[in-house]
Write a protein that binds this DNA or RNA. Structure first.
Lengths: 156, 156
DNA sequence: GTCCATGCAAATGATTTGCAGTATC
DNA sequence: GATACTGCAAATCATTTGCATGGAC
């Protein structure tokens, strides 16, 4: 939505930062791929389509800014790239980031949004004095195409 | 325990790999810090105490081997280092890795072992055809020293 | 003796940074 | 017009790799 864009512009102005084409285009690129988990390089390539002069360093700097403003979240699938996706806090009031199913065979990543651990968080806060504000869950397994359905039968 | 060591030696022999001092010392270093989440550099420094000739590259290569053998697990706290800890599958039959409470203020990491998501895993396997075999959970918040206890009162 | 493993130094590759020119406010 | 932003190239820094030597079996 353009909601992210408007919020970004507002936040930039609030902080005395400048609203530039490059910044808007980086956010737009990320927002245009809500199902993807983009690397800096991928975002760079996307923005270059409509703005070929942009530099990779600018993309990195903008990503950092967007992350500080909580407009995007970082995710790490341990494949050597840090990835980014539209933030869970983006405008709306959802407080938790969403989670990921990761296929161990083909590497496919499926996102899902669900508050998995509310109860557990409350319990830990009460017993350990550790006040939890967010959680991140990665589930590893095998997707349907990679044998998720019937792998059980093949074992033992 | 020395159980890890024996298992390591057995696995090396099974695969026609050589049992070297360096390999045993790297595993020993990790096993000697069960509460820590060591970086490659930290492991290197630990091993150097008893074996100063070891090279950092050997540590990296051994870590990779240990990880492939499932004797250690990788964890990433997004601070620029990959970290390692004794594997959840190490000898015993625990199938899930353990989880982490991460303090957003001081960075302290507390591990805990608990099967959090058995039910959820079963549900997703049944409905999405995605067969889950492991999960990783990171909980973010504030530890007791950093105001975990009373931060609730300070907010609005 | 044969290979595999090691140590060193050089290479890699994602991300960061310095700086002079450029655009926003 | 001042100041922040950009693009480029050079710098960083964790990790990997090539290669000749050394060690395990």
């Amino acid at each position: 939505m353009a909601a992210d864009r408007e919020q970004f512009i507002r936040l930039l102005k609030e902080k005395g930062l400048k609203v530039t084409n490059q910044r808007l285009l980086v956010l737009e690129a990320i927002a245009s791929c809500p199902e993807e988990h983009l690397t800096a390089e991928e975002i760079y390539e996307l923005v270059k389509v409509s703005y070929p002069e942009i530099g990779l360093a600018t993309v990195y700097r903008t990503i950092q800014l967007l992350n500080e403003l909580n407009l995007i979240d970082r995710i790490n699938f341990d494949d050597g790239f840090v990835r980014y996706e539209l933030g869970s806090a983006g405008g709306r009031r959802k407080k938790h980031r969403h989670h990921h199913l990761i296929c161990l065979k083909c590497g496919r990543v499926i996102s899902f949004q669900e508050d998995l651990l509310e109860e557990l968080e409350a319990k830990i806060t009460a017993t350990a004095g550790f006040h939890i504000v967010d959680h991140e869950v990665k589930l590893y397994g095998y997707c349907v195409e990679c044998g998720g359905d019937f792998i059980e039968e093949k074992r033992e």
